[in-house]
Design a binder for these strands. Structure first.
Length: 265
DNA sequence: GCCCAGGTATAAA
DNA sequence: TTTATACATGGG
């Protein structure tokens, strides 16, 4: 059991559209990363993680991005635009998670032309059908496991036309056609190009994968929602104006605008 | 029934 | 290079 200062907000971070597997019950959030199940909850001004010191240091500290100074980032972003300050102040407890690259890739392929509740459902079915039963939940199936399947095998998860894209991504990862390690540091335009060699990965999914799977925080995923948000809320700005932390700005804007759809009326 | 959802591949202009 | 359309599925 690990007790840390509450320097981020669980609900804001785990249910803001960046990850799809966390579930909440009686204040306890549960999910699984790399075959490790974690239960985590807020207790007054602390956050309690049900894990060993070793796992905390090796996995969760990095996953929850606990060493980054988000207060400083919020101040810098807030100085750029009053609307961006509003968005950051709406959910100041958001952290950008460092998710598993394969899970992020697969998840955001599933996200295309889809809605968040259904994305969660498809991913849950993917894990239940092809992941490992860990008691509390299921692990996310490995790329190697999925690469051995056919489109028909994936029928139970009801992913529709995305099934073939899931398979092409799994094959690319399982066969090392994509160099995962290099994507952490490779120039962004090259990294995008490499990801987009996968069938079903376009510019939006590529930026989501780089932001959420590789913590490339200058990436700014531009889906239809964010395009509308930028046009409506930031007519004077483009994503590049938000600098090296544009991806964090994007997450503030995405969550803020989705929770306040009247902004678009 | 119709419309839409954290897009992309494909064909055609 | 830019623009139009199909795509599977389920909720509103």
């Amino acid at each position: 059991m690990i007790l840390i200062e509450k320097n981020f907000d669980l609900a804001q971070t785990l249910d803001c559209g960046q990850a799809f597997r966390w579930t909440e019950k009686d204040g306890v959030w549960t999910a699984c990363v790399k075959s490790k199940v974690l239960k985590i909850k807020e207790v007054e001004d602390k956050i309690k993680l049900d894990c060993s010191q070793e796992d905390f240091e090796n996995i969760w500290e990095n996953y929850f991005d606990l060493k980054t100074d988000y207060q400083k980032i919020r101040e810098e972003l807030s100085a750029l635009s009053p609307v961006l300050k509003q968005a950051a102040d709406f959910a100041p407890g958001i952290h950008i998670l460092s998710q598993d690259p394969w899970e992020a890739l697969c998840s955001f392929i599933i996200s295309q032309n889809n809605n968040i509740p259904r994305i969660k459902g498809i991913i849950a079915k993917l894990c239940e059908n092809f992941g490992e039963n860990l008691g509390e939940t299921y692990s996310f199936p490995t790329a190697e496991t999925i690469a051995k399947l056919s489109v028909d095998d994936l029928a139970p998860i009801k992913s529709g036309f995305r099934a073939k894209y899931i398979l092409s991504a799994a094959t690319a990862i399982a066969n090392n056609e994509i160099n995962i390690e290099k994507l952490y540091t490779m120039p962004l335009d090259e990294a995008r190009k490499e990801l987009m060699t996968i069938k079903g990965v376009g510019p939006k999914v590529a930026d989501c994968v780089l932001l959420y799977g590789f913590h490339r925080t200058s990436c700014f995923p531009l889906d239809v929602w964010m395009k509308r948000a930028m046009e409506t809320l930031f007519p004077e700005n483009s994503p590049e104006d938000f600098g090296e932390n544009a991806g964090i700005a994007q997450q503030y804007i995405f969550h803020y605008s989705r929770m306040n759809p009247k902004l678009f009326e």
